[in-house]
Amino acid sequence: MQRVNMIMAESPGLITICLLGYLLSAECTVFLDHENANKILNRPKRYNSGKLEEFVQGNLERECMEEKCSFEEAREVFENTERTTEFWKQYVDGDQCESNPCLNGGSCKDDINSYECWCPFGFEGKNCELDVTCNIKNGRCEQFCKNSADNKVVCSCTEGYRLAENQKSCEPAVPFPCGRVSVSQTSKLTRAETVFPDVDYVNSTEAETILDNITQSTQSFNDFTRVVGGEDAKPGQFPWQVVLNGKVDAFCGGSIVNEKWIVTAAHCVETGVKITVVAGEHNIEETEHTEQKRNVIRIIPHHNYNAAINKYNHDIALLELDEPLVLNSYVTPICIADKEYTNIFLKFGSGYVSGWGRVFHKGRSALVLQYLRVPLVDRATCLRSTKFTIYNNMFCAGFHEGGRDSCQGDSGGPHVTEVEGTSFLTGIISWGEECAMKGKYGIYTKVSRYVNWIKEKTKLT
């Protein structure tokens, strides 16, 4: 034993070699072989497995989906700052455009905790909710729209109204504003409101030439003092309507412009014939205590009207009353817009006519005020429907199939267009061939041609 100890002390290297040989010859039971080890760690190889990531292109799944990435790591994937920024906006807080917040056709661009709407022409605001041009839906104005110097929408209202708090709607500024039905039992019968379409306001006024200088022999019209197929109006439903009495009662109609003036057809009036105007009328054979009678003290036909040349060209006249009318729910003026808007309103496509005229061709006159909704007829169809001249200051309205029309005794009465609950004068009943005849239409004086003249002559002093 002493000898062994001496050998170990003198030859430590020998001992180490012996131990190493023993270990190498022993069977290893701690580690699995290569094949079995792979069965336990069965993990798919990654895209760049075996390579240094710093030297390969980034992978979106590896960089940002398996674990949260930084902007720089995302930049490695896209290799483009702009594309990385677009991805980053949604990656950080989701897609803010998912709810489609942009209105009126706006395009949404996502941002971090926010979004941006790219608005089409005519709109602005956070969600493109603000109209900035009158060309689109009248700028959301209830009545009139004008573009300011910086191309912003400025709404306005006709006389007797003021802008509401929203700067879009119009509200009454006087007790009985024009064009409004205020009798409670008839307010439910107000005709369907007309909503502004998209309009090209630059070209809204037709490029028409008034044929002022045409000389033409007097034409022989049949029954051209021209509501057939209409309905009984309720008291106060058309408070701007008046009836004219002269040699015979209810020979023509008219509309209240203001307390002192009536507008009617020029062919209705004769110099030297006494005319009485009755406002607030409903049943011409009954006294309903809503009527107001006034005498006409002055007749002003349009300066281009000449019955000797043509009885229905420039067929418009103004009547001055001896005493002002007292405005109330049964006696209310009709609204008159400017030339541009009167023309736009007419193009809405349908209007209402009213009167006490004959209820059928050569038949009896109506006792109760009649009204009828009539569609506008395109000019080409209008011209083809008659052998008589249709001037540019006239328009056609009615039904091709016949059966409904204005008729004798309705002449001078109103053709009105309702705009968001307020009625505007767009025409004056003038003439036609018979009444409600198939293929024939009622012919009306186009008020847009005469609004400046009306307003100039009827100013209240």
Rank of each mutant, 00 (worst) to 15 (best):
F360N: 15
Y371S: 13
K51D: 09
S220L: 10
I214Y: 12
V273A: 09
R384S: 08
C407P: 05
I112T: 15
G229C: 07
C69L: 05
K146H: 04
L163Q: 02
I136S: 09
T445C: 03
L211G: 10
N147P: 07
Q237T: 08
T84V: 06
S99F: 14
F196L: 10
G246Q: 04
I316E: 00
C69F: 04
T16F: 13
N100T: 09
L327W: 09
E66P: 14
L41T: 09
D111I: 14
G363A: 05
C97G: 03
C119N: 04
N166D: 07
S350G: 14
L103A: 03
L460N: 08
V353C: 06
A233T: 09
A250I: 07
G179P: 01
K152Q: 09
A436W: 11
E98K: 11
A164F: 03
E340L: 08
S204I: 04
Q167W: 06
C435I: 02
Q216C: 11
L244T: 01
R404W: 15
D315N: 11
S354W: 04
C69G: 09
S220W: 03
C170R: 00
V195L: 12
V296S: 02
S187H: 05
E193Q: 03
V331P: 00
D200Q: 06
V227I: 09
C382Y: 02
V447C: 03
W240N: 00
G280L: 01
M8R: 08
V278K: 05
E129W: 03
G253Q: 10
V419I: 14
E35K: 06
A173V: 08
Q219Y: 06
S25N: 04
T422I: 15
F399T: 07
H282G: 08
N452Q: 13
V377G: 03
D405W: 08
S156Y: 12
V243E: 02
S365D: 06
L23Q: 01
G246I: 03
V374L: 06
Q185E: 10
R298H: 08
F176S: 05
K89G: 09
T264N: 01
C18Y: 02
V278H: 06
N59C: 08
T445P: 00
V199E: 12
V416W: 12
N151L: 06
I454S: 01
V447K: 00
N166I: 01
K89A: 13
I429T: 13
G105S: 12
C407S: 04
M437L: 14
Y441W: 06
Y91W: 04
G229F: 10
D338C: 09
G160S: 04
V92A: 11
T133N: 11
N328D: 09
A26P: 00
C69Y: 05
E418F: 08
L103G: 11
E320N: 02
A337T: 03
A307W: 08
V326C: 11
F399H: 11
A192Q: 07
E231Q: 06
V248D: 07
A265Y: 01
T16M: 12
L23E: 02
K362W: 08
R364W: 07
S385P: 04
L14S: 02
E142C: 01
S411Y: 10
E72A: 15
C108Y: 02
N213V: 07
Q216P: 10
D223E: 07
Q241W: 13
N328F: 01
G246L: 04
M8D: 05
N36R: 05
Y115T: 15
V368H: 14
E401S: 12
L367T: 15
T342P: 00
G409M: 14
T81Q: 10
L60E: 14
E433D: 11
E208G: 02
V377E: 02
E10C: 08
I334Y: 01
K39F: 09
D212N: 11
V77R: 15
E67Q: 03
P177A: 09
C396V: 02
C178D: 00
G280C: 01
G355A: 15
I40G: 15
A279V: 03
A337M: 02
T158S: 06
G160D: 07
D110R: 15
W88F: 15
A37G: 15
H302W: 07
T287Y: 09
S329D: 15
